[in-house]
């Protein structure tokens, strides 16, 4: 296969993963499950698309694509994690089919803790900017 065919294949795979992620976004029941689909599929899909672009262009652009991939791999799970954490702490309910919940105890401990911790649990951003 020529390099262009390789690039097209990679981009096609990436787009397919992105498509799966968006389907998951629509079908799954609650915020946390949707975040799962959104993060994993979209991160890998983006990486495949970038790899396709790197194969296609070569040289300087390929290097930029590789740097982009590293950044996406580092930052996108952090974004999902921050969203899930703040969603839980601001009281977004999990789906009723959730089987175990070890996190509830931790958050409730924070809520009943002395004032600064309570502030931290309820109003994350405000205390942090101080």
């Amino acid at each position: 296969m020529s390099s262009e065919a390789w690039a097209e294949t990679l981009i096609l795979i990436g787009v397919l993963f992105d498509l799966l992620g968006t389907i998951g976004l629509v079908r799954l029941p609650d915020v946390y499950n949707r975040l799962q689909a959104g993060t994993k599929c979209v991160t890998l899909g983006t990486c495949f698309i970038l790899a396709g672009a790197a194969v296609w262009a070569g040289g300087a652009l390929a290097m930029k694509a590789v740097i982009c991939m590293a950044f996406v791999l580092l930052t996108s799970p952090v974004g999902a994690h921050a969203l899930a954490r703040s969603a839980y702490r601001s009281g977004v309910a999990a789906w009723e089919g959730t089987v175990v919940d070890d996190y509830r105890g931790h958050v409730e401990r924070l809520m009943h803790a002395p004032t600064p911790m309570k502030d931290e649990a309820t109003a994350l951003a405000q205390t942090e900017i101080a």
């Binding site: 580092l74 952090v78 994690h81 921050a82 600064p116 911790m117 942090e128």
Partner: peptide
Amino acid sequence: SGGGLSPIVKTVARWMAGFI
């Protein structure tokens, strides 16, 4: 455990700021 955003966000922000 306390204090603002989680250690994951803080650590990665620390790594990324210079590269940005």
